[in-house]
Design a binder for these strands. Structure first.
Lengths: 193, 193, 193, 193
DNA sequence: AGGTAACCGAGACGGTACGTCGCGTCTTGTC
DNA sequence: GACAAGACGCGACGTACCGTCTCGGTTACCT
């Protein structure tokens, strides 16, 4: 006896998401077309255009509809270990299908379409970052992290090398890579460390 | 009796590059079309297809044809200061038109087109990285950098946060941001530093 | 305690007719759409489809709902003069808005849609013709018209040139044209007449 | 060694005409679509739009590309007999497939689209009329037709009843009908004739 | 100097997809 | 319980580019 959006609409949305993901995985985002999504979903094109203004935002929604395997944000008391766990989880997600290639394409699209960039930022990056920052804040309160440190900056420093690998060098991301990044950053780059 | 590439071909290539850049700056890479480039350049479409196999590679070439303001890679003996200078130069380039938005679009395209990714890697990222590594190697030899350190990894750690800003959060990049990244990385994230 | 059609239904029909006519006059029959009629009339599309099976028949009804200015069919005893009066009246109707262009469009639609052709024949042409034939019959009885003559044929001969002008040459129809047609037909085409 | 339009273009035009006629005969003009013509002709839609601005004009051209079986315009010296022959020929053409239904649809379209009306007038009606008028002029010179008579008007009077039948009552057109029209017009409608 | 081959602009061409419109059918929720 | 509002599958619209393909009209090179 709850009130909400008509079930029909929900069902359409769902089938469209699935068709989008299926086609994106089969042929890649570049060859994805709204026409093909509509055909695959057994849906009129207008039903898609009614919900999404562009291919990019459709794709963003469909990717986010894959309920991410709950990137865990543990708090064991050891902030370094916890961050490493988060990084492992992120790598596990981004280095493997289906997320990996799709996410890469999504970030690519964000460079062409400001609306996608905004959506990606608000709906994926920001929440993800916030949860990391919660952990960092706790560590900061316990004196494990420099008091005045900009925690968004820490996020950028920890994530940056991963994105560099995903997007720029496009080499495989592994736990080992995470380990080496962490070691370099936290053990220090200078010989005296 | 000079030997070299036919001058006309060179001239044509040049006008195509210029047309590509002009259109990309006016309307953005997403709306760029080979059709429009040909029209703007006063050139047959075939003349473009003869030289470039795809829009992405045409765009890559045209961007690289902007002789980058020679990112300088100084060696003053102070490796940290030199790296910072490099970062400043990179930010000056990437944070401002025309390079900034165009480069962002190029990296975006590299996510959709492996050929662009390869070209970008070989012709821009790799050389850039190599020159940085030369400087790091020198520092390493002088004992200013940990002996066993993977210098490609250092590059990733230094560049990563900048790319994160450029591509993910899409916030403005400034010298101040570089300073804060360097301070966090080299002064250390833990309170004891 | 009166018996009759529900008044609300009548009212709704009326507003639909008006909307149809208004749109047809504004944009022409070709651009008329049931969608637009419903919107203009402030009525659900279903309400229209419940009453009319096609755009053509809706338009036919709406045109006939304009109570034609009672084409008069006089009987003054002079059949030629009376027919001429009828022709004048027809021209007055068909040569001027709103009837003129709308009727022309309706006849056009009748060429594409047999249902419209049938409706037009039964509900406009046939009654009109019948009333003319009544007058002709009287004249025939009085010996003013050849006894064996097919009066439907006479109708075709008198109307034909008017329709030719309306539909084929699409030149303006005037009383003068009627006069010239009548003179040629009744005075005769050969010089001996 | 003549100069003219490229053969390829001529060939395309021809195959498009044929596809248009085939589809129009199969499904009727109302259901004809440029999309379907393109598919049937094995041609891109743009190739059609490059040549014709509307479905109506495409159809007009395709109908006229059926080289009409040379409606003959004889001159035997007997103008009445010659006109009757012309009328027979017209009826033979318009009363039978393929011309009949297609021509009817074309005249219908002319009521919705001024461009079609103009084309029809200039490219079919006018030439047809002119040839009839040539015959009438000769008769007039020989004193078989009233000297001052508007010959366009004669054409309207002779054609009108045929078009009335084709378009309004939509009954079959036969030689017999022609005979009855001619008898009524030329023998006279009044009993004294 | 003339002949010929390569190159070029222009753009036609078969396609694919775009984003929009209207069809006729179907919910949904309101009055 | 009738009805406005409009979602829906569908088909077609007219447009934009794709990458390939003629088509003539210069170059520019080689006898």
């Amino acid at each position: 006896m709850t009130i909400g959006p008509p079930e029909r609409a929900v069902a359409r949305t769902k089938v469209i998401m699935q068709a989008t993901l299926a086609l994106a995985q089969e042929s890649g985002y570049a060859k994805l077309s709204i026409e093909a999504v509509a055909a695959r979903a057994g849906v009129g094109k207008h039903t898609i255009y009614r919900r999404w203004p562009s291919k990019g935002l459709l794709f963003l929604d469909s990717l986010l509809s894959l309920n991410e395997p709950a990137l865990n944000f543990p708090d064991t008391g050891d902030v370094l270990a916890d961050l490493r766990q988060q990084a492992y989880a992120a790598v596990d997600l981004l280095a493997n299908p289906p997320w990996g290639p799709l996410y890469q394409a999504l970030v690519g699209e964000a460079q062409h379409d400001p609306a996608v960039a905004a959506g990606l930022g608000e709906r994926f990056i920001r929440p993800q970052t916030d949860r990391t920052i919660v952990r960092l804040k706790a560590a900061q309160d316990q004196g494990q992290v420099s008091p005045g440190l900009d925690l968004d900056l820490v996020m950028a420093i920890l994530s940056g090398p991963l994105y560099f690998r995903l997007l720029i060098t496009q080499e495989p991301m592994t736990h080992d890579y995470v380990d080496r990044v962490f070691e370099a950053i936290f053990t220090g780059l200078s010989p005296r460390h």
